[in-house]
Design a protein around this nucleic acid. Structure first.
Lengths: 195, 195
DNA sequence: CTTTTGTTTAACAATTTTGTCAAACTTAAG
DNA sequence: CTTAAGTTTGACAAAATTGTTAAACAAAAG
């Protein structure tokens, strides 16, 4: 059963991810995906069996790659401050490319009912939270529930990218202006987190 | 052409808003909306003509009520610090009730192509930005592009509510725990914004 | 060159979702 | 009570979306 690998399967999946994560078309039809990929629609069924199967696969891969990225950054043995700096750099870069990835995950969880419970996850998260707590004890960052620190950090990174279309209108900015603003945030967030 | 007003039209609209804004079902079908409202599906067409018309109306009302809320808070003559305190209180309360309202607006803008350009808006926003700038000049808040200050503020308020399903899993928290955490944020955000 | 196997396509079928309509129903007015 | 007007319902039609199949096609193997 040797596969000829024309790259079509990957092309369809990548195109779907682009529509979902980059363009925010969270409910694109198979036709829209096929058109954007420049392939016949039935190939979606040929490679993925069904629309739902494609969505599920994209969902799982999105979740996995998001968590893997976070794991890599969080589990590194860098000093804390450097680790956060790295996290900001990596996360911001990925989120600028795929601003709606987390939204896709969340709305998918809301519309279907996803049951997720990875025990291993808890360990890693707790280790990170404890490290934050330790930094607070040392007086390096303001004292609060470490979960707040984490949420603050990710909020500051992700939300302005999600709300970009709205912000551009409210602030009267074009794409170029807004990109400059987003670039500035890397340092800004670091300074906000470490006063 | 006296209307009998059985409240059905409003019920359908309110139910749709609940599904969209509160439950995050951003693409509910007319059947799902009708079921949730406990009415016959054809009433959606009777009162709103088409699914698209219902979505458009909800979209416009969402946008309007969001902007009105912001206007009221922002244009008040309170001292700046108090104004922000009030903004946090009002916005957080509304967002806890309708966490996905802004997302609905944004994804709707992404999937359709909405042209929006209210000149009046720009004036109000600029006035607010200038007020922030003035506070920075006085040394009351850290110096930065006032747009950053604004984005920081809204990010800290909105994002943890949007990502609640994901955070509950990652942090291993139930709904009650998470609500407590969200309540804490009112003060926390204020303190983060005013160091 | 022929065969084999995987890929792509178009036509078709099935399903899902939306929209229409006439009849039944309800309530207020005459 | 009867009428009139708005409301609700179910049956049906239309449209949109998804899924299936057989045939055409392309490339590697024999």
């Amino acid at each position: 059963m040797s596969t000829r690998d024309t790259g079509t399967e990957q092309l369809i999946k990548d195109t779907a991810k682009h529509l979902f994560f980059a363009e925010g078309k969270l409910h694109a039809t198979t036709q829209e995906i096929a058109d954007a990929a420049g392939v016949n629609r039935t190939l979606v069924n040929y490679y993925f069996r069904s629309r739902d199967a494609l969505f599920d696969q994209v969902f799982h891969e999105a979740q996995e790659s998001l968590l893997n990225m976070l794991d890599e950054v969080i589990e590194s043995s860098m000093p804390f401050k450097q680790k956060i700096e790295n996290l900001i750099s990596v996360f911001l870069k990925e989120t600028m490319h795929f601003p709606y990835r987390e939204l896709f995950i969340i709305t998918h969880m809301n519309s279907n009912d996803v049951i997720e419970s990875k025990k291993a996850r808890g360990k890693k998260v707790n280790a990170f939270l404890e490290q934050i707590q330790s930094e607070m004890d040392k007086g390096n960052i303001r004292s609060m529930n470490p979960r707040h620190f984490t949420m603050n950090l990710f909020s500051l990174m992700a939300y302005p990218l999600v709300t970009a279309p709205l912000n551009k209108i409210l602030f009267g900015m074009n794409d170029a202006d807004y990109n400059i603003l987003m670039e500035e945030r890397k340092n800004l967030i670091f300074e906000t987190i470490f006063p």
